[in-house]
Amino acid sequence: MSEKVQHAVLPARQWHERQAAHEARVDHWLGRHLARRRDGVKHPVEDFLFTYYSHRPAQLRRWHPGFGVVLADGPAQPPYVSAPGGTTVDPDLPHRRLDSIRWIRDLLVATASRPPQLGCFGLHEWAMVYRQTQDQVRHNSWPLRLSPAATAQVVEERGVRCTHFDAYRFFTEPARPLNILTPTRDRQAELEQPGCLHATMDLYKWAYKLSPLVPSELVADCFELSRAVRELDMRASPYDLADLGYAPVRIETPEGRAAYALSQKDFAERAAPLRARLIEACDDLLIVSGSATGTPSR
Score class of each variant (00 low, 15 high):
residue 4 K to S: 15
residue 5 V to A: 14
residue 7 H to N: 15
residue 14 Q to R: 13
residue 16 H to E: 14
residue 17 E to P: 03
residue 21 A to N: 08
residue 22 H to F: 07
residue 27 D to C: 03
residue 28 H to A: 15
residue 37 R to H: 11
residue 37 R to P: 01
residue 37 R to C: 03
residue 41 V to Q: 14
residue 48 F to L: 13
residue 65 P to R: 03
residue 68 G to Q: 02
residue 69 V to L: 07
residue 69 V to F: 08
residue 69 V to Y: 02
residue 71 L to E: 02
residue 71 L to A: 04
residue 72 A to S: 13
residue 80 Y to P: 05
residue 81 V to R: 06
residue 81 V to I: 12
residue 82 S to T: 13
residue 87 T to G: 08
residue 92 D to F: 05
residue 96 R to Y: 07
residue 98 L to S: 10
residue 106 D to H: 14
residue 106 D to Y: 08
residue 106 D to L: 14
residue 109 V to A: 15
residue 114 R to A: 09
residue 115 P to M: 09
residue 117 Q to S: 11
residue 119 G to C: 01
residue 120 C to S: 15
residue 121 F to A: 03
residue 125 E to V: 04
residue 128 M to G: 06
residue 133 T to N: 12
residue 141 S to K: 13
residue 145 R to F: 01
residue 147 S to F: 05
residue 151 T to V: 11
residue 153 Q to L: 14
residue 164 H to W: 05
residue 167 A to Q: 08
residue 170 F to I: 04
residue 174 P to S: 10
residue 176 R to K: 15
residue 180 I to V: 15
residue 180 I to D: 12
residue 180 I to P: 00
residue 181 L to V: 01
residue 183 P to D: 09
residue 190 E to S: 12
residue 196 C to F: 07
residue 196 C to M: 08
residue 202 D to H: 14
residue 210 L to E: 08
residue 216 S to I: 08
residue 219 V to D: 02
residue 220 A to L: 14
residue 224 E to C: 03
residue 229 V to E: 00
residue 240 D to N: 12
residue 241 L to E: 00
residue 241 L to D: 00
residue 243 D to I: 07
residue 252 E to Q: 02
residue 253 T to G: 03
residue 255 E to T: 11
residue 256 G to I: 03
residue 259 A to N: 01
residue 266 D to W: 07
residue 267 F to W: 05
residue 267 F to V: 01
residue 269 E to C: 08
residue 272 A to P: 00
residue 277 R to H: 07
residue 283 D to G: 06
residue 284 D to T: 08
residue 286 L to W: 03
residue 289 S to P: 04
residue 293 T to P: 05
residue 294 G to I: 13
residue 296 P to I: 06
